[in-house]
Amino acid sequence: MRKTARLSALAATGLLALSSLTACANDAAGTSHSSGNDKAGGKGENVKIMVGGLDKVIYLPAMLTDRLGYFKDEGLNVQLLSEPAGVQAETALVSGQVQGAVGFYDHTLDLQVKGKSVESVVQFSRAPGEVEIVSNKASKAISSPKDFKGKKLGITGLGSSTDFLTKYLAVKNGVQPSEFSPVAVGAGPTFVSALQKGSIDGGMTTDPTVATILDKKLGKVLIDMRTPEGSQKALGGPYPSSSLYMQTDWVNSHKPTVQKLANAFVKTLKWMSTHSADEIAAKMPADYSQGDKKLYAEAIKATLPMFTTDGVMPQNGPETVESVLKAFNPNIKNAKVDLSKTFTTEFVDKAAKAAG
């Protein structure tokens, strides 16, 4: 196997990392984030997974699985890479630069109508985990999505799930996507800065960004979709979001490896369901708390209700996602989507049985 360049500086140099990945597309060899050996003592299987923001709480199971040692237990060397938006993780996956992506399930529907066969193999969540925030300055002018007209609204990236959900909330409340301006501002410090400077009037983001904004009193919550109840109220049903999704052809040709990934992630989801936010926060990299461990734990606590305990797709979840996308996306609205091909429970079902 060829050796690939180390990608340790990926978080700081996303563009450089992406070009490095292109040079080794479909090559599973390389330096992995968790480099454990298999039980026989040989080198473990190498898998690259691109995450739409490793430090986002909605994607917490990815890094937590590594920190708990569950990838290593399965004989896997999983290299976790990071991009600021889920749509970029999607791009890395379909171009063959990585074998898996941790991002929103809704990308599987969007890709299907574009002729790409991608499926969720482990469903991390049953709600978006997203929050629509408005700046203090704009809070009087924006009391509901009906007021989005003429406003500048932050999203992580064009074509991202935050873009999808913002457009849906607008259309549902009588505002067309062409009547407001989506602004790609990422998450974390870049989102906070845009809100402070007035570059955006509000926007959709996740924890720990939400916790930071509220702690600094820079804005207010307009719509909270971090819980199943919040998802039901805003979107009309459960909205499966963060997941491990992969190209169907790769899944079918690498079932033993996919099963090991499912085993590891299901163990993590179960572990999360029996531990407190403080205990979860303590397992994560120290820099994720940005110097405020208490605030970080609070961010995790606020988002925990969105996660599944078994990795199984929530009942009626795919239908809710399809309904949301059809409301504003003309490509999906006029297309027939085969929801059965957008996810599988084959691997999580086996993982559950193996775990007893």
Rank of each mutant, 00 (worst) to 15 (best):
Met284Pro: 01
Val266Leu: 02
Lys293Ala: 00
Phe265Tyr: 01
Ala299Asp: 10
Met284His: 05
Ile300Gly: 10
Thr268Ala: 02
Asp292Val: 04
Ser273Arg: 04
Leu295Tyr: 10
Asp292Leu: 05
Ala302Phe: 05
Met272His: 13
Lys270Arg: 08
Trp271Arg: 04
Phe307Glu: 09
Ser289Trp: 15
Ser273Asp: 07
Phe307Asn: 02
Lys293Trp: 02
Tyr288Gly: 00
Leu295Trp: 09
Ser276Gln: 13
Tyr288Val: 02
Asp287Gly: 04
Ala282Cys: 09
Ile300Ser: 13
Asp287Lys: 03
Pro305Asn: 00
Asp278Ile: 07
Met306Ile: 01
Lys270Gly: 06
Gln290Gly: 01
Lys267Ser: 01
Ala286Trp: 07
Met272Ile: 12
Thr303Asn: 12
Asp292Phe: 02
Ala282Phe: 15
Ser276Pro: 08
Met284Gln: 05
Tyr296His: 15
Pro305Phe: 06
Ala297Lys: 14
Ile280Cys: 11
Ala299Ile: 06
Pro285Cys: 00
Glu279Leu: 12
Ala286Gly: 04
Glu298Gln: 06
Pro285Phe: 06
Lys301His: 11
Trp271Gly: 05
Lys270Cys: 04
Lys301Tyr: 12
Asp278Ser: 14
Ala286Gln: 05
Lys270Trp: 05
Pro285Thr: 02
Ala277Cys: 07
Ser289Thr: 15
Asp292Asn: 03
Ala302His: 00
Thr268Lys: 03
Tyr288Ile: 05
Ser289Leu: 10
Thr274Gln: 14
Glu279Arg: 12
Pro285Trp: 01
Ile300Val: 12
Ser273Gln: 06
Lys283His: 15
Trp271His: 09
Ala281Phe: 14
Ala277His: 06
Leu304Tyr: 10
Ala281Gly: 08
Thr274Arg: 11
Lys301Leu: 09
Ile300Arg: 14
Asp287Arg: 03
Thr309Ser: 11
Ser276His: 12
Lys270Ser: 10
Thr309Glu: 13
Asp278Pro: 07
Tyr296Glu: 14
Lys294His: 07
Thr308Arg: 08
Thr308Glu: 10
